[in-house]
Amino acid sequence: MSLNCFPSFTCHNVAVYQTLLCRFALALSLAMACSAESLAGNLAYITNQGSNSVSVIDIASKQVTHTIAVGKAPVGVAIASKQQRVYISNANSQTISVINSRSQQTIQEIPVKIQAVGIALSRDEKTLFVADWGGAQVIAVDTAHPQNQKAFKAGKTPSGMLVSADNKKLFIANRDSDDVTVVDTRTLQTIAQIKVGIHPFALTLSPDGKTVFVVNVVSNSLTLLDTESYHTSTIKTGQHPYGVAISPDSRWAYVSNNHAESVSVIDIASGKTVKTIEVGEFPEGIAYDKATQQVIVANWGSDTVSIIDANTNTVTNTIDSPKLCRSFGQFILEAR
């Protein structure tokens, strides 16, 4: 129907109407953009070792939003929220893939010439630490100039790592020397070497920054390591633990038990397991999402991700992910 059917609609009226319509469309577009931004929640980056990819899961909606090609046999994850980057260690291609967390695309491959498994980022995001699974060293990579790399000593088969809350110390779990190396992040010199359980693998820092939780795979235990005094205590876990996540109030430890295909919920104060939750096959990476109060578990054997409601300690969702998902490290990107 043409405008000629409405003789009272002058050219001036049409111009005003079109202007108002354009303004309304622009306002609606902006409102939808703002709404989409406000709905954008935390993201979990799941490394799929068997398919050379990373799955991005929107935790609130419990959906895979992107699948990103990376290097060969991806394992570790380090989140750089200020840089809007996610670093992925690739064991077989001996590289670090760099993902732009806005576009969800791989934008760079950094050669490190070691079997990269465990990775951790300094608090200022200036240095990426990459553990040499095949040796007894760690590589410090300048994130602004990735070709600048420095190697320094660790224990045998370094695996999980984390940087202290004050950015002064790097803690390294050494699987085959059954200890944790503490390194000065400025000088890259060893400060301390602390004996823990048998085959320490993953590390997590308590919310107050005072305790490092060390997963001892063969001892079936957690070592609680004081970040200042280096005093230790031990808590029993399920069979063959691989990862640990701590609740924001520091009350609960969630431990993925690789050989028991479960997650132990442990009361940290008493050291007692209060519940055992069945998940997928061979669970490995685990993290606590503060925004939704959910625990995210990557199941290596069943190619799935289990979502646990931390209020009820029950599995509410199981999400398919490509082959051999691991997510070793801190793999949740918090929305700003």
Rank of each mutant, 00 (worst) to 15 (best):
V180L: 01
L222A: 07
N52G: 08
N258H: 14
A78R: 02
E109W: 00
K195L: 01
D178E: 08
S8F: 12
T19I: 07
G76M: 07
Q18L: 15
V315P: 08
A31P: 00
I99E: 08
Y45H: 12
V255Y: 04
T237S: 08
N174S: 11
L128S: 11
C22P: 01
T273Q: 14
A253F: 09
I235R: 00
T106M: 15
T314E: 15
E37W: 05
F328H: 14
P111R: 05
S327Q: 12
G50Y: 06
I110W: 10
I46M: 10
R123Y: 01
D184K: 03
F282S: 05
K168F: 00
M32I: 15
N48D: 13
K72Y: 11
K323E: 14
V16C: 05
K168S: 14
R175T: 15
V180T: 02
E281L: 10
A91E: 13
I46T: 07
V130L: 08
Y17V: 07
N48A: 11
T211M: 08
D226P: 02
R336H: 13
D58V: 02
T106S: 14
V305E: 00
I110S: 05
Q94S: 09
G50V: 08
I308H: 02
Q294H: 11
Q293R: 14
A298G: 13
Y288P: 03
K195T: 10
V77D: 12
A131C: 08
A116P: 03
I139T: 14
F282P: 00
L205K: 06
I107W: 04
V217F: 10
A287L: 10
M161W: 02
I79Y: 05
A36V: 10
Y254W: 12
P248M: 10
Q147P: 00
I139E: 09
S81V: 09
N299V: 04
I59A: 02
A80F: 07
S35K: 07
I57M: 01
I235M: 09
I235C: 01
S164L: 05
D179W: 01
T314V: 10
T143S: 07
P158S: 06
S2P: 01
A291E: 12
N174T: 08
T227G: 03
D267T: 13
G197Q: 03
A287P: 03
D184N: 15
D320Y: 07
N92P: 02
S101Q: 07
K236V: 10
R123V: 13
T227K: 02
I307M: 09
N220P: 05
T292N: 15
S122T: 13
V295W: 02
S122P: 04
Y17M: 12
I319G: 05
V77W: 08
T232Y: 04
D267K: 04
P248R: 04
Y230F: 15
L43G: 00
N100G: 06
Q108M: 14
F171P: 04
Y288Q: 08
A144Q: 14
R102H: 07
D179Y: 02
L224C: 03
Q193E: 11
L324R: 12
I246G: 07
Q149S: 07
